[in-house]
Design a protein around this nucleic acid. Structure first.
Lengths: 121, 121
DNA sequence: ACGGGTACTTACCAAAAGGTGCATACTTGA
DNA sequence: TCAAGTATGCACCTTTTGGTAAGTACCCGT
């Protein structure tokens, strides 16, 4: 339903709205790797270096709930579950692509900046 | 200096590198508003709804340290300080633009998804 | 009977991030 | 003398986010 006149907008801007979807230490990386195609849980965990089971599962659940990611359970033993992007999720990942490019292009500068942060503390 | 052969890469991918620069609840929004041109501190605080002085200053300092933002002190009383994007920062904000567009386009879906999250807790 | 594998759960804890409240510096005007 | 304005500092606190460790379900092979 449309917002009432006096209602505070729930997002500051479009960027704010997007950030609500992708906020979480691991979500952008999860999406980045899922962009390569449907992925087993274990394979995804190996790709997203450093993530714990607890957080991987939690953030996958949120992404699934948000309609960004789709979970496919093959009903086998041992368990085999694939995660993949929905079309909605794929559109989000396309919007994230320039960030990947920017990071690749400036990786050295960013590394230097991160070192500076450590030094100044 | 170049990474040694056995060194773990410090970023998982280009996206990871970028995220290190813009991580922080308020940074993306700070950058978004600075994209409109040099901005007084107080004006920036009013634009970024909800931020505290402590965090605004802290995240501006990090962005300045990272070479993303430039601080200009006019040496006047009352204090007048402008913050603006460096060329490096402007290139980052250009890479973020699709996220703004995506969020604007899907704002209703995102609002629904945020409500779903609340409900399921 | 037990261990293997995969995917996932849960209670508790730790760390990080963010916020509050009060303070500061400085000049000017009342 | 005090309050005003802007921008910023800081100690302490709260909240959020993330991690650890141990556990679960299920079938199969040893």
């Amino acid at each position: 339903m449309a917002k009432e006149n006096s209602e505070i907008p729930r997002f500051i801007c479009g960027l704010d709205a997007t950030l609500h979807v992708i906020s979480g230490k691991w979500k952008p990386l999860i999406l980045f790797f899922l962009n390569k195609g449907p992925t087993r849980y274990g394979e995804l965990k190996r790709s997203v270096r450093g993530v714990s089971d607890k957080m991987l599962i939690q953030q996958l659940k949120e992404l699934e709930s948000d309609g960004i990611v789709q979970r496919t359970d093959y009903g086998e033993i041992p368990l085999r579950v694939d995660y993949s992007l929905t079309p909605f999720g794929a559109s989000l990942v396309r919007a994230m692509e320039p960030l990947c490019g920017w990071g690749e292009e400036h990786e050295e500068d960013i590394a230097v900046a991160m070192d500076r942060r450590k030094t100044s503390r």
